[in-house]
Design a protein around this nucleic acid. Structure first.
Lengths: 184, 184
DNA sequence: TTGATTAGGAAACAATCATTCCCTATCATC
DNA sequence: GATGATAGGGAATGATTGTTTCCTAATCAA
């Protein structure tokens, strides 16, 4: 089931919700039409399940990137670097389902909007936590405004997914090097 | 004609390309079906025209915001503030057609992708120019990497449109206050 | 006033969409 | 080995899509 969902994630990321037909889904999930509707109520339910699946996978990847740092500041740097990498290349061209949902659906679909907001809040809290962690261990100055900086960094990460989807090249070291000035 | 295009811009921004039907377009443009197809080859052509119209209007607004500053640094600050304002409230919820195109179409539509890239490049060059202007007039330190900082600021502005569409509130003064540390 | 050209509007069209229905294997249980 | 239940597959369906066609109204030159 998770492997079928991974297929749904791939095609929903790439084309978005409306441009993905049931035919595209059955091909990507390796399931027939009837089987999809036996496992899910409708296309919208498939999308919500794919959204959750994507969020889970990405959360683990981001947490994993954070663990590569020795203190709060380094953990945050690795998280930002991870975002740049995931925004580039084939995965960057495929796109992020959270960004896609925010842009394509959040205006007209309250359920999706709630999921998007929850995901953004989780990420923002995680980043704010890393900043406070860095302030506690001395790697980030006390005068840095954790919440405001975290919100700006959410803008940065979401924006990277947009320009990554447009295939603009992003240099991780240079981009993150500049972004780290926000922690000065 | 421009007033009809403004209607098309509004509905394309809000719902994106695929979720906008010809019926939605005729209602928003106050034109009958046949009239739309007499003025444009097909729906795709309407979208491209709406994209250009949007880009033109936004360019003027951004240039206008820049003029409110006395030096390079202040001009850039006003540009960022303008982006926050446009990413908020009803206009923020409506969304940006450039971000929408990048996310929804750039993966499968080379023509749209080229327009998106051109628009991003124009904005990035404008910001980089403001940074160099500030370095020339002494309001921005010489050691700031203009190109890298401009690219990161593009990520910030595009990201603000994403979180603004998701209806996350953005405090202009605080957010831009943090972002200005990139010019230190 | 007349004639010709253009813009506007609504119905008809084929294609595609999401969804439902029914059939066919497969497997465990009796 | 027969049977019942379940999962998977594919054709049929009704709605909706983008597009075309045809007709009417209006505008402008002569």
């Amino acid at each position: 089931m998770d492997t079928a969902l991974d297929g749904a994630v791939r095609v929903f990321c790439e084309r978005g919700y409306h441009a993905t037909s049931i035919g595209d889904l059955t091909a990507a999930m390796r399931l027939a039409t009837g089987s999809v509707y036996k496992a899910f109520r409708d296309k919208h339910a498939v999308f919500l399940a794919a959204f959750e699946r994507y969020a889970t996978v990405r959360r683990e990847q981001t947490r994993g990137a954070a663990e590569r740092g020795a203190n709060g500041r380094e953990r945050l740097r690795h998280v930002l670097l991870s975002y740049v990498e995931h925004s580039q290349g084939s995965e960057g061209r495929r796109g992020c389902i959270v960004v896609g949902s925010a842009v394509e659906l959040s205006a007209v679909d309250p359920v999706v909007r709630a999921r998007v907001n929850a995901q953004l809040a989780t990420n923002e809290n995680f980043i704010a936590g890393l900043i406070r962690e860095g302030q506690a261990d001395g790697s980030i100055p006390r005068h840095v405004a954790a919440d405001d900086t975290a919100r700006l960094m959410i803008c940065i990460t979401q924006g990277m997914r947009v320009v990554g989807k447009a295939r603009l090249p992003l240099d991780g070291e240079r981009l993150v090097g500049v972004a780290m000035k926000l922690l000065a």
